[in-house]
Design a protein around this nucleic acid. Structure first.
Length: 889
RNA sequence: GCGGAGGUUGCCGAGCCAGGUCAAAGGCGGCAGACUCAAGAUCUGCCUCUGUAGGGAUUCGCCGGUUCGAAUCCGGCCCUCCGCACCA
């Protein structure tokens, strides 16, 4: 095992030496970023992988001569941190246990509870984890310029966010309007995912029910559905006789709905008034008319109807709802279902769906889905006959709305409570702030950017294009949480994803700005070539030149779920605000991490703490594992078995290199030259793979292939350590991107100057001799395989092999024949050449190969090897170029 | 349904864009041998079938096509995974 002290030692050295502080100079720059972590807890393996990938790329770019900037900051905006504090203060057991465990990763047992108590202050949670995460980054050996660290709630950064939002506002991108959101009436607050019990594992979304008004004598019934297009198939209405119903007034119409519906609806429609209770008997005693069709219907009691779901009154469409069909059967109501929809020319019916799937819920789900995507309204259906169900649904909804015969009832997708136990409803807020991403011209410009920037892997380009196409209005402010007050209306706080779109720009100037709060003119000056403001102009000039040197971001490495939120905001805010030359250069999507073959989740018990891994295995091993086990964009499985395998390889590699430094004998002999030539070939491949971010391919080449070459070298009588010693100058720097701690150590031990982390390694060049040796060795290996095969087939144990090479004259003739010129001296060779033309190769100088490597064949096979050229007169069998004749004796 | 990704030899996983050198990298695993009293570690060879001279046959989801030649290109089909706001 790598002594942990070595890793800590080098992390200390990097810090002391300020190795990764990056300043503008005359080199080409490379600016790489990863998402800033949210400081509500420690990092997990998924983070660790993304950051390790980014760091390997950052280090590789340094190796190839770039001036690399790799900064990080901390995201503290939003509601979760506050929610955590509240829960800890309220003694919520689950949260306290979780945070006790988190803290115990960093603290001695007696200190844990003391730290936990400070968490009743959100600021303490944020700063505690920001500090620990900083340590986690260091502990992984991530090469960060820490001078530029800032937090999203720091006043200087907030100034930039304010500037950004005023900018967007002046560009007309920010609007205000009605918006439905999750809300707790008891607490008088909007609620986010983190405020909801199990909100993170079981998401709550908002569904829009169409509450259709069925007109009776004195009042209307509001019956709710997600499928207004089935209005032509309504046979009756359902009501729950055990529930409480009320008479309300909305837009001068008297409407009946359940009591709980009325309470919820009043959060969505400010004009709604509750007038009186109304008995179920009274409701049932009357008939009601369906809008559009004018049909008269009865209301039936049905205890299965949930009074707390939408309006608590449901219209029954037994033809297209499995539930309604079953209710009719259960209650013995004899009604003929009406079928409105066909799929592929055949009626789609609830009955058939129920036969296909025994389970009613499953049948219903499939019926809904099939009818929505593939169904057509039957021709005889009025108004929307022949139209797609999805279109008919919208049209009927519009029609009803225009006639005033329905209203929209927003309902939660499941029953949800806040963590404090009060119910979650949907409220419509008037005056919600949006960023309107739907604007055509803005999208067009962004499409162009998506087209030209780099995506790894490339198919995410199309994906991103679709996301830009899809995005519309996006709420950008909330009433609660940490963050920057919205400059246009400071009673709002900018939402936490919207405040993190152009933040990488701030990294370029954070260490210059310090605690100073800049004005809008200052930011205009720095970022947009505006006129300088009144502030300290020297500081501004410095900030401006640093920004202009570093920006934009050349590579952003992030996870796939960010595509449809953060990344699209990131792109569109850049295209809206900055000059084209500052737009993002590339995005790499890192794959997910699973553990022992399964998705990581706390309930499965396969969650792994990044810190534990690093403490037990070492940062270098973790990084090596990340590098070698799968390419950055595919799924990575963290499992004990593979960890051990990789660990063994790593140990072998370390011992080899350390031993080679201790035995710096001079090598001589062909075996070593061959090794070095092949090493340079591997190194070249290493570079070409890493240029494509194929980290795995690169390290298979420079670790596994090289080590395989070393064992061949041993077979040829060489000493691996001696061979290794001769390539240390190139090998250690190449390895250092993945295993920086170990490499610093051996770099120093080998007497090299400076940090290997900053070493600029020249691109390897293959000489003519390298190429000849490399082709000779593969030629020789083929020869050995051929001899082995002959021995195997003939079961001859030969003591010597005579190898007959193709002579120059025959070679010329072969070439002629291959070029369709059959005018050759010895016509006998024509059929031979034609038959085995696939095997012919002129690439290897065969005499050279056997002169230099003939002894290798002798050593490997334990037989004597002699060779000579073809003699047309004497030899029966004819050799071909690259394909000599072998005679075993 | 639409969009995206993928289906490779016992397993994982390259190759496919730029067709031949691909029975197909690398790893894992297995078998045999060397070493060892033995086991482990390590090293060597083998791991589709077949063959007493380096060959042949059959393989890269399935079916066709283009080509002198296809894992690689084209068309169709089957299956798996992921996403889908106004669907659930």
């Amino acid at each position: 095992m790598m002594p942990m002290n070595d890793e800590l030692f080098w992390q200390g050295e990097w810090k002391k030496d300020q190795t990764f502080f990056s300043n503008p100079d005359d080199r080409k720059k490379f600016f790489i970023t990863v998402p800033w972590p949210y400081t509500s807890g420690p990092l997990h393996v998924g983070h660790g992988r993304t950051y390790a990938i980014a760091d390997i790329i950052a280090r590789y770019k340094r190796l190839t001569g770039f001036n690399v900037l790799f900064p990080i900051g901390f995201h503290e905006s939003g509601t979760p941190i506050g929610a955590i504090s509240d829960k800890i203060a309220n003694g919520d057991k689950k949260t306290r246990d979780m945070y006790r465990e988190y803290v115990s990763r960093y603290e001695s047992p007696e200190k844990v509870d003391k730290v936990l108590e400070t968490f009743t202050d959100p600021e303490k949670v944020a700063s505690y984890f920001a500090d620990r995460i900083t340590m986690d980054f260091d502990r992984l050996g991530i090469s960060i310029d820490w001078r530029r660290k800032f937090r999203s709630i720091d006043p200087p950064y907030r100034k930039m966010v304010e500037w950004q939002f005023r900018k967007l506002y002046s560009l007309g991108k920010i609007k205000k309007g009605k918006h439905a959101l999750l809300f707790s009436p008891d607490e008088g607050n909007p609620v986010g995912e983190d405020d909801i019990e199990d909100g993170d594992t079981n998401k709550v979304s908002i569904e829009d029910f169409v509450s259709v008004l069925f007109t009776g004598k004195d009042f209307s019934l509001a019956a709710s559905s997600l499928r207004p297009e089935t209005i032509f198939g309504i046979t009756n209405l359902w009501i729950n006789k055990n529930a409480e119903y009320v008479l309300t007034e909305l837009n001068n119409r008297k409407i009946v709905m359940s009591a709980s519906a009325a309470r919820k609806a009043s959060l969505q429609h400010s004009g709604l008034k509750i007038i009186d209770h109304i008995s179920v008997e009274k409701i049932i005693s009357e008939k009601y008319r369906v809008p559009i069709t004018g049909k008269e219907l009865s209301v039936y009691p049905n205890e299965m109807i949930d009074p707390d779901q939408a309006t608590g009154i449901v219209f029954s469409v037994p033809g297209h709802s499995v539930n309604d069909l079953e209710y009719c059967r259960m209650l013995g109501i004899k009604i003929e279902p009406v079928f409105l929809i066909e799929i592929d020319g055949k009626d789609s019916t609830s009955r058939d769906a129920l036969i296909k799937h025994k389970d009613a819920d499953l049948a219903n789900a499939e019926l809904y889905k099939d009818e929505f995507y593939r169904g057509l309204m039957k021709k005889q259906v009025p108004l929307v006959g022949g139209k797609k169900v999805s279109i008919a649904r919208d049209e009927i909804k519009e029609m009803l709305l225009n006639e005033g015969n329905c209203f929209i009832f927003h309902e939660t997708s499941r029953k949800a409570r806040t963590r404090n136990g009060s119910p979650v409803c949907v409220a419509v807020i008037d005056g919600q702030w949006f960023i309107d991403y739907s604007e055509k011209e803005w999208k067009n410009v962004t499409y162009g950017e998506v087209e030209t920037m780099r995506f790894v892997p490339d198919f995410y380009r199309k994906n991103m294009h679709d996301v830009v196409d899809w995005i519309g209005e996006r709420a950008c402010a909330r009433k609660r949480g940490l963050g920057t007050p919205l400059p246009m209306d400071t009673s709002w706080v900018i939402e936490s994803l919207s405040d993190s779109t152009i933040y990488p720009a701030f990294y370029t100037i954070a260490h210059i700005v310090g605690k100073k709060e800049l004005s809008d003119e200052d930011f205009d000056y720095i970022f947009l070539d505006g006129k300088a403001g009144k502030s300290n102009s020297e500081l501004l000039a410095k900030a401006k030149s640093e920004f202009e040197y570093w920006y934009g971001v050349d590579e952003r490495i992030t996870a796939q779920p960010h595509l449809s939120n953060h990344l699209v905001f990131y792109l569109m805010n850049h295209t809206a605000i900055f000059d084209r030359k500052y737009w993002p250069g590339g995005i790499t999507i890192a794959g997910t991490v699973i553990s022992n073959g399964a998705k990581i989740s706390k309930s499965k018990g396969n969650a792994v703490s990044l810190l534990d891994i690093v403490n037990e295995q070492g940062a270098d091993l973790f990084r090596f594992y990340v590098a070698v086990n799968s390419d950055p964009w595919s799924v990575l499985d963290w499992n004990q078995k593979d960890v051990e395998i990789v660990s063994r390889k790593f140990q072998e590699l370390r011992e080899l290199i350390e031993k080679s430094i201790e035995t710096p004998e001079k090598d001589d002999g062909m075996a070593y030259s061959v090794f070095r030539s092949r090493f340079r070939t591997h190194l070249l491949k290493f570079h070409s793979e890493l240029e494509k971010y194929s980290i795995r391919g690169a390290y298979i080449e420079i670790v596994y292939e090289v080590m395989n070459d070393l064992s061949e070298l041993r077979n040829m009588g060489g000493v691996p350590e001696i061979a290794v010693y001769s390539v240390l100058d190139q090998w250690i720097p190449a390895l250092s991107c993945v295993m920086p701690h170990f490499c610093e150590k051996v770099w120093k031990k080998a007497g090299k100057k400076g940090m290997v982390s900053l070493f600029h390694s020249p691109m390897p060049v293959l000489s003519r001799e390298d190429e000849m040796l490399v082709s000779s060795i593969s030629y020789t290996k083929n020869l050995i395989a051929d001899i082995r095969e002959i021995q195997k087939v003939t079961k001859i144990s030969a003591s010597s092999a005579e190898i007959i090479l193709c002579d120059e004259n025959t070679k010329k003739d072969v070439r002629k024949i291959l070029e369709n010129d059959l005018n050759v001296k010895d016509k006998r060779i024509i059929p031979v050449v034609m038959k085995s033309r696939g095997k012919i190769s002129f690439d290897t100088d065969e005499k050279y190969a056997l002169d230099t490597l003939g002894s290798m064949i002798e050593k490997t096979l334990g037989i004597k090897v002699e060779f000579r050229f073809y003699d047309m007169e004497k030899d029966k069998k004819m050799p071909l170029p690259g394909k000599p004749v072998i005679n075993l004796v």
